[in-house]
């Protein structure tokens, strides 16, 4: 193979793997990616998050992108190999360029949606606080702190919800009541 052919061979789309596995008869479900592989990734992600979220910085303006590596064994068991913070986003081929620019645009849509939702709520609290502080009555600061805390607690306001074309898919959202928060990605009996 030429250098260019090697580079193109080295990186596969998920669809290419599914086609290869179907052609060789290793799988029979034409929707294997959607029915098996992606749900397995999502389930593993919930386990990873639940194992490590104790050490996360719980602040409304904190987010992080991770690159996770997995392998399949010949019995189709999925194995988590490692997780990397700040993954390299380098477009070394046309396919990767498209994938990563889609990923970044979608990431901005999500973070910007959460930010604008939060700011809408926080501004509303500030405006009410300003009015209350002009009334020359003693302020109940405990109550205002609690109002601020609730306003800063992230969730999407309907006008800033994530669009249909966003290339991320939600795995868990603990602003929603359980078990809905996990979108069926783990068995209901696992939801505490």
């Amino acid at each position: 193979m030429t250098e260019e052919e090697l580079r193109d061979y080295h990186i596969w789309k998920f669809e290419k793997l599914q086609d290869y596995l179907l052609e060789t008869g290793k799988i029979s479900d034409p929707n294997w990616l959607e029915n098996y592989l992606r749900p397995q990734f999502k389930k593993a992600m919930i386990h990873l998050i639940k194992m490590s979220s104790g050490s996360f910085w719980k602040q409304s303006n904190v987010y992080g992108l991770f690159g996770l590596d997995f392998m399949l064994d010949d019995k189709f068991n999925l194995w988590f190999i490692e997780g990397n913070p700040n993954p390299q986003l380098l477009a070394t081929s046309e396919f990767l360029g498209k994938l990563l620019s889609e990923l970044l645009m979608s990431l901005f849509e999500i973070e910007y949606g959460l930010y604008r939702s939060r700011m809408t709520r926080v501004l509303e609290v500030i405006q009410r606080f300003q009015r209350a502080s002009q009334e020359k009555k003693p302020l109940n600061m405990k109550k205002w702190q609690e109002e601020y805390r609730l306003a800063a607690f992230n969730r999407f306001e309907p006008q800033f919800a994530v669009g249909k074309n966003n290339s991320f898919s939600v795995v868990m959202d603990e602003s929603l009541p359980k078990p809905k928060a996990y979108f069926g990605n783990i068995a209901p009996e696992c939801v505490l």
């Binding site: 991770f66 973070e111 868990m172 602003s175």
Partner: peptide, 27 residues
């Protein structure tokens, strides 16, 4: 051999909001 690279976005830690994104295989 090959391995998978997928992307996980921890969109929020307060509360936890997490997203999945397809990646690719490295053959």
């Amino acid at each position: 051999k090959f391995d998978f690279r997928i992307y996980m976005l921890v969109a929020s830690t307060n509360p936890l909001i997490v997203y999945y994104h397809d990646g690719f295989l490295r053959a």
